[in-house]
Design a protein around this nucleic acid. Structure first.
Length: 383
DNA sequence: CGGTAACCTGGGAT
DNA sequence: AATCCCAGGTTAC
């Protein structure tokens, strides 16, 4: 159960750089069940030293105030980038494999591990990072309208919204429903392994995200065996719908960038497994819908605490879901999604260390364990 | 149309 | 050790 080769026959062109493990040897007669567990490669820390040309770290004109890698990459927008160093993250953008890291002064540099075109890689990177949008300017406005935001912003500078590929973003968030980060990551890794191998960095293998055509060759059963649970049919169902679009699913998704938010959300919700929350994630993280608000359990907590206290204790229904989104937009404006991103991050346990203790959200699991009966309030907090 | 109960799975709490 | 609960929801009654 420790074989790691991609589970399905590789019909795609051979990888541009030799994969670290040679799948050729393993005789494949039957499709062996491949549980998600232990997808972690046991590859050595570094491999493949083939110098493509003269790769080197190249500075981006981006300060930490505009882009903090630790606050942007491992905080739930994407599950495809891996930490490969102290302040370094590695991932793919289209057919490009690259790393980003902070320099001593906080500025960001990038390193191209593999690309068909250096200039295209640079352009793709700038696009992916949404560099045309000034985070500092946005946050200035948010801070004027919200003193709590202003406080949090001091400690969490550079939490930026990425501009991801819609197909990639969609599939990732299809995996996210009612799920936890660890398992989502494993599922995304599984899907990713179906794409063309682009290289290996820091012990991680990186693949171009598989095309819809490639994905359409995967059956629901295979995904279930891989541990996707009921989300297996979401993937196959959505891929099928996308494949049926006249101009192709990828193009159809891209066309949603030109629509109004509600139209884009409605279109996305027509896909199986895509509800309001997942649709908002896709809209915000890949479709230029900067005021989309993914209302998940975290955001619901935040909203009922600081934005709509009158709703505290209520259950999260689609109706209230849109009510929360409206509240965010009316408070933060057309880039409300970018504000929500910071508030969401501030609520993550993993970022607690960056904040003064008075920001720590005293989360008392509803366990509460009231010694006796009587006072049994729903949400555990009493004000 | 608004409210509820299943839905896969694995890790942590009870 | 056996259950219960929950995790960045969606779908079907």
């Amino acid at each position: 159960m420790h074989s790691l080769k991609p589970p399905l026959a590789m019909k795609r062109p051979r990888p541009p750089s030799p994969p670290p493990l040679s799948p050729a040897s393993t005789k494949q007669t039957s499709p062996p069940p491949r549980p998600l567990k232990s997808l972690h490669p046991n590859t050595p820390p570094i491999s493949s030293k083939k110098p493509k040309s003269h790769p080197k770290w190249v500075p981006l004109n981006l300060s930490q105030t505009e882009l903090s890698l630790p606050l942007t990459f491992p905080t739930g927008q994407t599950f495809r980038w891996k930490q490969t160093g102290p302040l370094q993250y590695t991932g793919t953008i289209g057919p490009h494999l690259l790393s980003l890291k902070h320099l001593q002064n906080g500025d960001v540099s990038y390193f191209i591990h593999f690309t068909p075109s250096e200039s295209a890689a640079k352009l793709a990177l700038l696009d992916f990072l949404n560099v045309s949008i000034s985070l500092a300017k946005l946050w200035e406005v948010f801070s004027e309208n919200d003193s709590r935001f202003a406080e949090l912003a001091k400690y969490l500078k550079g939490a930026r919204v990425l501009r991801q590929d819609p197909v990639e973003c969609l599939v990732q968030f299809l995996c996210s429903s009612n799920n936890n980060i660890g398992r989502i990551t494993k599922m995304v890794d599984f899907i990713s392994s179906l794409g063309t191998h682009l290289g290996s960095v820091g012990g991680f293998d990186f693949h171009e995200f598989p095309s819809l055509e490639r994905l359409s060759a995967v059956s629901e059963e295979e995904l279930r065996q891989a541990g996707f649970g009921y989300r297996a049919k979401y993937i196959t169902g959505t891929v099928d719908v996308l494949q049926s679009k006249p101009d192709g699913g990828a193009q159809w998704l891209l066309s949603l960038r030109k629509l109004d938010l509600q139209e884009a959300i409605d279109a996305l919700c027509s896909l199986p497994g895509v509800g309001p929350k997942v649709a908002a994630c896709i809209a915000l993280f890949s479709l230029d819908q900067h005021h989309a608000i993914p209302v998940d359990t975290h955001v619901w907590q935040i909203a009922t605490k600081y934005l709509l206290p009158e709703l505290a204790g209520a259950r999260l229904t689609p109706k209230l879901c849109s009510r929360v989104a409206e509240a965010f937009v009316s408070k933060y404006g057309e880039y409300a999604g970018w504000a929500q991103t910071l508030l969401f991050i501030a609520d993550l346990p993993s970022q607690k260390a960056l904040l003064p203790s008075h920001f720590w959200d005293i989360k008392e699991k509803k366990s509460a364990k009231i010694e006796d009966s009587n006072s049994c309030n729903i949400d555990g907090n009493y004000s």
